[in-house]
Simulated assay, not measured.
Amino acid sequence: MNTFSRRIGTGIAGFATAAVVSVFAAPQASATVDAITVSGSNHVIDTEYALTAKLSGAGIGLLVYWSDNGEDISGPKVPWPVGEAHLNWTPKTPGRHLITCSQGGSTKTIEVMVTDPSNPDPGDPTDPGGGTGSAGKALSGLFGSS
């Protein structure tokens, strides 16, 4: 291999390395999750709802992640169409659900209250231990209620 070929190869490798570094070093905060909406109203368990996020910024094509109360519900998703992210969501538990959409360094969260039609009196839905679920009803049956 001659000197000229080595210089060309080294130059190409250096350029490729610089390109990769610039992609990974790009400011991810330039992606913005502007708003989240949830279809329907009076959300109930075991019913599917559409989650939609409106996106903007220079990082609009970065992968999008969805979570429910901090638990991943989507894995990485490519935003499509450009400027939007969509996910079908079926809540399995009643109570307060914090739905979060993240893209790059930007996140947006929306609170969704979910009910169980078979237990229309969940107590304080913001208290994870509150309510009079089946255990509470069983104890009040044993000890009486006031």
Results as ranks from 00 to 15, higher is better:
residue 45 I to H: 04
residue 123 G to N: 06
residue 135 A to K: 11
residue 37 T to F: 01
residue 6 R to A: 14
residue 9 G to K: 10
residue 79 P to K: 09
residue 110 I to C: 02
residue 125 P to E: 00
residue 72 D to K: 12
residue 131 G to K: 09
residue 18 A to H: 07
residue 52 T to M: 13
residue 90 T to C: 00
residue 19 A to T: 11
residue 38 V to D: 01
residue 28 Q to S: 08
residue 50 A to Q: 10
residue 63 L to T: 06
residue 54 K to W: 04
residue 1 M to F: 09
residue 12 I to L: 15
residue 140 S to W: 02
residue 14 G to C: 12
residue 59 G to I: 10
residue 27 P to K: 14
residue 52 T to S: 13
residue 146 S to M: 08
residue 51 L to H: 04
residue 53 A to G: 02
residue 123 G to R: 04
residue 120 P to D: 02
residue 108 K to D: 01
residue 3 T to V: 15
residue 135 A to F: 13
residue 58 A to Y: 03
residue 45 I to T: 10
residue 31 A to P: 07
residue 20 V to M: 14
residue 146 S to G: 15
residue 63 L to Y: 05
residue 56 S to Y: 01
residue 5 S to A: 15
residue 49 Y to H: 12
residue 14 G to P: 01
residue 14 G to Y: 05
residue 45 I to M: 03
residue 92 K to S: 14
residue 101 C to K: 06
residue 146 S to T: 13
residue 127 D to P: 04
residue 70 G to Y: 06
residue 7 R to G: 06
residue 105 G to I: 00
residue 18 A to Q: 00
residue 35 A to Q: 13
residue 90 T to H: 00
residue 136 G to P: 03
residue 56 S to Q: 03
residue 30 S to P: 02
residue 23 V to D: 07
residue 106 S to C: 12
residue 139 L to K: 06
residue 19 A to M: 14
residue 95 G to Q: 01
residue 71 E to I: 15
residue 4 F to Y: 08
residue 138 A to G: 00
residue 60 I to A: 02
residue 40 G to A: 10
residue 97 H to N: 07
residue 47 T to Q: 13
residue 34 D to F: 03
residue 67 S to A: 15
residue 69 N to T: 10
residue 18 A to I: 14
residue 146 S to K: 13
residue 38 V to A: 12
residue 92 K to I: 11
residue 10 T to L: 15
residue 128 P to C: 11
residue 111 E to D: 08
residue 102 S to V: 15
residue 139 L to Q: 03
residue 138 A to C: 01
residue 107 T to Y: 04
residue 76 P to M: 12
residue 81 P to R: 11
residue 11 G to F: 11
residue 42 N to T: 12
residue 65 Y to S: 10
residue 120 P to F: 09
residue 23 V to L: 15
residue 146 S to D: 07
residue 64 V to D: 04
residue 96 R to Y: 05
residue 143 F to Q: 08
residue 81 P to H: 09
residue 18 A to M: 14
residue 61 G to H: 01
residue 130 G to I: 14
residue 40 G to M: 06
residue 5 S to K: 14
residue 141 G to Q: 09
residue 13 A to I: 13
residue 57 G to N: 06
residue 60 I to Q: 05
residue 25 A to G: 07
residue 67 S to Q: 06
residue 68 D to Y: 09
residue 67 S to V: 03
residue 141 G to R: 11
residue 37 T to C: 06
residue 23 V to N: 00
residue 57 G to V: 12
residue 104 G to R: 07
residue 20 V to G: 04
residue 35 A to I: 03
residue 121 D to M: 13
residue 25 A to S: 11
residue 115 T to N: 08
residue 77 K to I: 12
residue 136 G to T: 08
residue 141 G to N: 09
residue 3 T to C: 06
residue 43 H to F: 09
residue 127 D to C: 12
residue 74 S to C: 08
residue 76 P to R: 10
residue 32 T to S: 08
residue 37 T to I: 13
residue 65 Y to T: 12
residue 109 T to A: 10
residue 15 F to Q: 07
residue 100 T to D: 05
